[in-house]
């Protein structure tokens, strides 16, 4: 059974970059979300066992998504992929229960390493 994975980012380029960085032999079913609301909709319909989450998005930003998931004790494994790399952003993301904080521009090796560490591949 493929693992349901959602990529949430308002930028088409960034979603493409994440897609390309996923290991080719990882059996996943990918859903794309353009904002936080779509990301939560994906989570609530079982399409996001793993969620790759951007922070700066319209409608509802990544912090809002994390907060919702945290409050609802969601089992989604969230990997934040962010252009905002200030220590403060990372601290906030950690406190909201994200599993990993990866910096943009995304390095495929770092993504792979995170997936290995989290036991996903």
């Amino acid at each position: 059974m493929p693992i349901p994975v959602t990529i949430a980012d308002d930028s088409l380029l960034s979603r493409k970059v994440v897609r390309r960085a996923l290991p080719v032999d990882w059996d996943v079913e990918i859903t794309e979300a353009c904002n936080g609301k779509e990301a939560l909709a994906a989570v609530n319909s079982g399409k996001a066992e793993v969620l790759f989450l951007d922070l700066t998005m319209p409608e509802l930003d990544g912090f809002g998504v994390l907060k919702y998931l945290h409050e609802h004790h969601a089992k989604t494994v969230v990997i934040v992929i962010s252009a905002d790399i200030q220590p403060e952003a990372k601290r906030l993301v950690d406190s909201l229960g994200a599993f990993r904080f990866l910096q943009k521009p995304l390095q495929p090796e770092q993504l792979k390493q995170a997936l290995v560490e989290l036991g996903l591949i």
Binding site: S11, L12, L13, A83
Partner: peptide, 13 residues
């Protein structure tokens, strides 16, 4: 979209 995202990443840095 691509330019905006590239600028977004560099302004983050």
């Amino acid at each position: 979209d691509a330019l905006q995202e590239l600028m977004n990443i560099s302004m983050g840095q």
